[in-house]
Design a protein around this nucleic acid. Structure first.
Lengths: 189, 189
DNA sequence: ACACCCTATATTCCCCTGCACATAGGTCGG
DNA sequence: CCGACCTATGTGCAGGGGAATATAGGGTGT
């Protein structure tokens, strides 16, 4: 379950309440592309406590309701590390959050993990996504609705595929750049 | 349910079996970013038949198992149009498939719908996503694990946010370009 | 001859997850 | 004073959706 590792990964950096986790997901975490609603976060936290991966202390607050502040346990740290080291299989859809999740929350534990995940992702994208996508051929379609303008419709499909192609290309460029920076031993100038 | 409208939208263009729908989702439809597994497609098709939005004919095939080839009904066409005309609320995560789905499967029905959806999306992205994201501040974090290199971890968060920022920027550029092309009345040169 | 994959449909089990709602104190504007 | 909104926690319900499995004919490789 991806949400488990988002929570464990964030708790590696600092203690957080369920409410904090949601704030992160709606804020900076938006770019990672994975998000769930509050009830789900609370439910997952309960399960993670049951499993012994996280624990909490009640933080009594004067001018706000009491909060449960969660922290990572030793078992949770091991679970996160095990996930981070498990084989990474890229998703067929480049915009899926799988890679970014692995990269950030796995990679933060160990430089070798970060490098290996980026390398795997890059190889996969070069193999399956670097090719120029095919144009849809009008003769393959026979609209059931006479009012539908087939050229218009396929034009929209084409421009969306162009968006996807451009996005994927710059994604691949980012993967190459990031890989070389990681291999050089530092990521920020 | 988004899957309903993916199916209705594809059936607007041509008759398809459940298996065909899955092939499209794994192939060209990958760029739209919405995908489910086969069992879910079959389940949805059953529900759409019950609701009267689609119907099927059994296609007896010589050298392959018989296939159910689905087609759009009048009620299905109306349901798709109603969805396409309903107010569009952009998702807070730019990579969610909501916009692309609306744009392709709503926009193919009517040029005004396509223009309106792109305009709404562009306004939203300019408002919420055009700003440079903040850098994470190291003093806000207190890792529980001494082995964790906080600068390294935050560096990874930063480069992923840079990827998100670059992606969003080129997405906004695409929205502007597409809007002006749509307003000019044609999308392809 | 046998293994394996492709087309094609579908079910069962079980968990994930969104929506609506409940609770409750604090703050702020009208 | 009241409504609206923020912090902060949850519950109940219904439906979405993945993994594994079943079935079954045809083609392809070794």
């Amino acid at each position: 379950m991806l949400l488990d590792y988002v929570i464990l990964g964030m708790l590696t950096l600092r203690r957080l309440s369920g409410y904090d986790l949601r704030k992160w997901m709606e804020g900076p975490g938006r770019y990672i592309g994975y998000g769930v609603k509050l009830p789900q976060i609370y439910r997952r936290l309960v399960k993670l406590v049951e499993r012994g991966w996280v624990a909490f202390d009640v933080d009594v607050r004067e001018r706000a309701p009491d909060a449960k502040v969660y922290r990572l346990t030793e078992a949770g740290r091991e679970a996160l590390l095990e996930w981070a080291r498990s084989p990474y299989e890229p998703s067929s859809r480049p915009m899926d959050p799988d890679f970014r999740l692995r990269f950030v929350f796995g990679g933060q534990l160990d430089r070798e993990i970060a490098i290996s995940v980026v390398r795997t992702e890059l190889e996969y994208r070069l193999k399956y996504d670097a090719a120029t996508p095919e144009q849809p051929r009008a003769d393959q379609y026979e609209p059931e609705i006479p009012e539908l303008d087939l050229d218009w419709a396929l034009g929209l499909h084409t421009v969306v595929r162009e968006l996807g192609f451009a996005t994927t290309s710059s994604y691949i460029a980012w993967l190459k750049l990031t890989l070389s920076r990681l291999e050089a031993g530092r990521i920020l100038p």
